[in-house]
Design a protein around this nucleic acid. Sequence first.
DNA 1: AAACACTACAACCGCATATAA
DNA 2: CTTATATGCGGTTGTAGTGTT
Length: 317
Amino acid sequence: MGRAPCCDKTSVKRGPWSPEEDELLRSYVQNHGTGGNWIALPHKAGLNRCGKSCRLRWLNYLRPDIKHGGYTEQEDRIICSLYNSIGSRWSIIASKLPGRTDNDVKNYWNTKLKKKAVAMHSQQQQQEYYNHHQQQQGSGGRARRGAGTPRSQCASMQPSPASTTASAGDAACSFGAMYSSPSTLPQATAVLTRYDGAATAPLPPPPPPQQQQQQASSLAEFSHAPPQQAAATTTINSWAGGLAIDDMFLPELLGVGDFLPGDIFGVGLAPQLQADRASSLQELAACYFPSAQAAEMWAAADHVKPPPQAGLCHSLT
DNA sequence: AAACACTACAACCGCATATAA
DNA sequence: CTTATATGCGGTTGTAGTGTT
């Protein structure tokens, strides 16, 4: 049959860790390692704790390479960029930030960064509203997204649908915000779709046929999604709508200098540059494909090689 | 000084997936 | 192949510290 029970949760200590417990766990792991068995570890280490709790304590707090607080501007941008692209995949985001844990990044986002994003998004919308009215009053000049707004971090925060948790009151996670003013988006703005089978938010109403065609062609042009699925974007819920690419930080994250819409997966890059960045691109691409099959479909489209088996998405921090 | 509100973050909970028996 | 457990992860909660009234 199966394995032995994890622990008796009624008899183990819970709540905050004491310095003594920390020291016991730290010294044990440093001397013996985890042994790949967190369940047995607390007993061996002389701790009256659940193995799960020990693992969490070690990974999120006691590891020697952990950084606490003091997030840099660059880290903020990386978090925003990745959240914008892949949603609340904290372990993936944290893996891009040396010394940071998923729990830490998650807390940082929920307590600080999200509020900043909401404020900036609100400011951006006000600006768009203002620009729209200026345009209607015949002042000429096309409304520019974010015009007059400092192009700083999180200015484009519009979390992906799948990142939402259906908390209707949460402006930062408002699906509608993504589509709040599509007419004000520059016509050339590319549309990025990503796979997420667990999209919880409702899809926006389908655009008129002409716009659908235009959207499909923009998808084909930039090839953000595997072509077979990109063509079916408007009919397959798994491709959870469109996400405006208005993000200046992914290229920095990926180490790509001149970023063009569509370059996330290497399309449009010079061959040499594409080769140089293949690893990073594949890592990110891996985040978009739920299965090896999808990755193969992507590979069959002759864009990039399929993500490695043990890709970014499967690695822990 | 006390009461209340807010913030930050550690820890817990539950679910999905991997894996051992 | 089936079942039960281990592990990893994201969401949520609890609480200590700090600021405000």
